[in-house]
């Protein structure tokens, strides 16, 4: 079973919809993206550019949060 992959072209809204736990990463990076009016317009690439942090680091942070959540979710499902 593969973990969902986040692309730089995903919008903030798509990312949060797919993996809501990634909100922690947006907040940890001190962005105002969670709850923003423009979440449907800004891509992850736009976010990294706007706030001036490396896209790769940002994406891997999001990916790792998504992955942690994904596997925890799978484990919880098995327990149920």
């Amino acid at each position: 079973m593969s973990t969902p992959l986040l692309s730089p072209h995903f919008t903030v809204a798509e990312t949060l919809r797919q993996e809501k736990e990634t909100s922690r990463v947006f907040i940890a990076h001190k962005t105002a993206c969670v709850g923003c009016y423009l979440a449907h317009f800004c891509t992850l690439e736009d976010v990294a550019k706007t706030y001036g942090f490396p896209l790769e680091d940002f994406l891997s942070g999001l990916q790792s949060e998504a992955q942690t959540n994904y596997f925890t979710g799978v484990q919880n499902e098995k327990q149920v």
Partner: peptide
């Protein structure tokens, strides 16, 4: 600069 407008709207 969409983020600039958000900054004003949210008082950031």
């Amino acid at each position: 600069n969409p983020h600039g407008v958000v900054r004003i709207a949210e008082g950031l």
